[in-house]
């Protein structure tokens, strides 16, 4: 393309633009090359160090044994179905319980004062107790009371623990969302005659929930991993099955198999969360997802 052929300079054909494009292309290629080389060097060195370490053959045998992987996997996989079921149930319950707690904490109605105090105490207390202690207290303590009509299945108490524990965090996430909705939205809703409950339901909450979806998903990545804690109550989930295999064979590959199953679930969810955050940043406006 020459300048003679383009008597009127149209966009995209000026020599200055071509020079800029070429420059940026060179820059891009350079940063890609540097990135690739440094990645290879770092991970290559790391691999060399590990593979040449004196203990590597023994570690390889006890952590990366294909035979043990194959042998333990079916059992762990069937245990993992339990993890999936547990956190699916827990997630739904957490979303509901946490929303109720958050709305109560955000309300200003004097009628709800006792509930508001209870909700605040709940959030403060639960966030201060390690989940594992709560799990032992509820999982071993409550069934030991031998109360009539109270279920004593370990799975029931395991789910209850997760719901109680995570709802406190998720309630705070919701509340942050509720508080991020500008008060002019409430003013507009109230000025149209909507009651404060109606304003919350139809104007504030829809906007709040949309804004906190990424942090909510983040909490659920954590929840999915924490479903492995249930092994401590003897629930036959993936980690427990892996433990049983390890105790029988003294080979740790089974743990790796369990970890792999968790990764298959959590990594895509984490990626999806990142994607949502990126998209939210791109469109700051309030259009629905």
């Amino acid at each position: 393309m020459t300048e003679a052929e383009a008597p009127q300079r149209s966009p995209g054909t000026s020599p200055g633009r071509a020079r800029r494009l070429a420059f940026h292309k060179r820059q891009r290629r350079r940063s890609l090359t540097i990135g690739a080389i440094s990645t290879i060097v770092v991970f290559g060195t790391l691999a060399l160090v590990v593979l040449n370490s004196p203990g590597w053959p023994a570690v390889q045998e006890s952590f990366f044994s294909w035979e043990h992987f194959k042998a333990s996997f079916p059992d762990i996989l069937s245990g993992f179905r339990r993890n999936v079921r547990i956190f699916l149930i827990a997630e739904v319950l957490i979303l509901i319980v946490a929303l109720v707690v958050a709305v109560i904490r955000s309300s200003r109605s004097p009628v709800l004062t006792p509930l508001r105090l209870a909700a605040t105490a709940y959030v403060d207390l639960i966030r201060g107790i390690p989940t594992i202690i709560l799990l032992f207290l509820l999982g071993f303590g409550v069934p030991a009371l031998g109360l009539q009509g109270v279920p004593n299945s370990q799975e029931f108490w395991a789910i209850t623990t997760l719901v109680i524990s995570y709802s406190a965090y998720v309630a705070e996430v919701y509340r942050a969302g509720i508080e991020s909705v500008h008060e002019s939205q409430t003013a507009a809703a109230r000025s149209l005659g909507l009651s404060s409950a109606q304003s919350m339901r139809w104007v504030v909450l829809p906007q709040a929930v949309r804004r906190v979806i990424p942090p909510l998903l983040n909490d659920f990545v954590a929840l999915q991993k924490d479903s492995a804690l249930l092994a401590l109550l003897g629930v036959q989930e993936a980690f427990r099955r892996a433990q049983i295999y390890v105790f029988g064979t003294f080979n740790f590959t089974a743990y790796l198999a369990a970890a792999l199953l968790f990764l298959i679930l959590t990594v895509p969810l984490a990626r999806y969360t990142d994607y949502l955050i990126r998209r939210q940043r791109e469109r700051v406006g309030g259009s629905p997802l």
Binding site: S184, A187, A188, V203, R210, G285, G286, S287
Partner: peptide, 11 residues
Amino acid sequence: IVFQAFNLFPH
């Protein structure tokens, strides 16, 4: 009431 900043519901 009509507000200076419109206050439409963005969702």
